[in-house]
């Protein structure tokens, strides 16, 4: 039995810069394993260990995602092996194309009965790939899973999650796609031993053609503008004396036309 974990090699937009005309420059933002995908890998590792399954990382992206640096970073987090679907068309792919590539990777691997995804990627952040992936595979998808257990012998997964209605426990028959809640478990940074071990783990880089996959065409972007929001004033209030600072804050809020506490 194989468990697949989907991960993205992505840069943090907070390290990118935006020109006034809306062009995003990611050149100074270093890509890494997207924050919440590390949580998914940790969840996948625990499930695979308990079930005696193999844990395979699957990823879709442009050339950066298939570099030794990216593969090592993923493998050092505890994967047994990795498959990357690489294409220039996946460089800044949308939800649908990403899910298409991941579905093709799952089919290519065969024998996968569980896919674990992260909550959302650090760059796109849509929280939608797990569900589209489930749809393409014809499997159910359960998102926001805080804790999961596998009963591999009878093909069952128990998932617990916190939703608006309360704490829900679900029991599903495999195959299934789940996404790990953002804070499901801690994903410690890999140590030196993990990094050395990663160099010896197998990986495969495939093109969409290798998988007989035809990616859906991307829709054209007709406009892109910088989101700036209102300019903030950044007025510093001296905090040497907390009581004076508090009085000054209330006065400043009232002066700004936004009083608090019923005073104006």
């Amino acid at each position: 039995m194989k468990i697949a974990v989907a991960y993205k090699w992505a840069a943090d937009p907070s390290e990118a810069s935006v020109s006034p005309d809306g062009q995003v420059d990611f050149s100074r933002a270093k890509p890494k394993i997207s924050e919440y995908d590390a949580v998914a890998i940790a969840m996948g590792r625990a499930l695979a260990d308990a079930a005696g399954a193999e844990l395979v990382g699957i990823s879709a992206g442009g050339s950066a995602a298939a570099t030794p640096l990216a593969l090592k970073a993923a493998l050092s987090r505890g994967l047994d092996s990795a498959v990357v679907v690489q294409s220039p068309d996946l460089e800044s792919a949308g939800t649908f194309q990403t899910a298409q590539a991941l579905a093709a990777a799952v089919r290519h691997l065969g024998d996968v009965t569980l896919v674990v995804c992260g909550d959302s990627s650090i760059d796109a952040g849509a929280q939608m790939v797990p569900a589209v992936l489930g749809g393409l595979l014809g499997w159910p998808a359960l998102t926001d899973v805080g804790a999961a257990q596998l009963a591999a012998a009878d093909n069952r997964l128990t998932a617990e999650r916190s939703i608006a209605e309360g704490i829900q426990t679900l029991v599903a028959t495999l195959p299934i796609v789940i996404s790990a809640a953002a804070g499901a478990l801690a994903a410690p940074a890999p140590g030196m031993k993990d990094i050395l071990a990663a160099a010896k783990k197998p990986s495969q880089v495939l093109s969409p053609a290798d998988l007989s996959l035809e990616l859906a065409a991307a829709a054209p972007v007709t406009a892109q503008v910088k989101v700036s929001g209102p300019a903030r004033r950044c007025v510093q209030i001296d905090t040497t004396d907390p009581a004076t600072a508090a009085a000054e804050l209330l006065a400043a809020l009232a002066a700004a036309g936004t009083p608090i506490g019923g005073r104006s």
Binding site: G94, T95, F96, A99, G125, A126, Q127, M128, V129, P130, A131, V132, L133, G134, G135, L136, P140, A141, L142, T143, D144, R161, I163, A164, A216, A219
Partner: peptide, 23 residues
């Protein structure tokens, strides 16, 4: 909406329609 079940079913619909998703 964006509740977990909303997203799960929206994703299945997107897959069935070959549709892009905008959040």
């Amino acid at each position: 909406g964006r509740a977990p079940a909303d997203r799960a079913i929206a994703g299945a619909i997107a897959a069935a329609m070959t549709a892009p998703v905008v959040v």
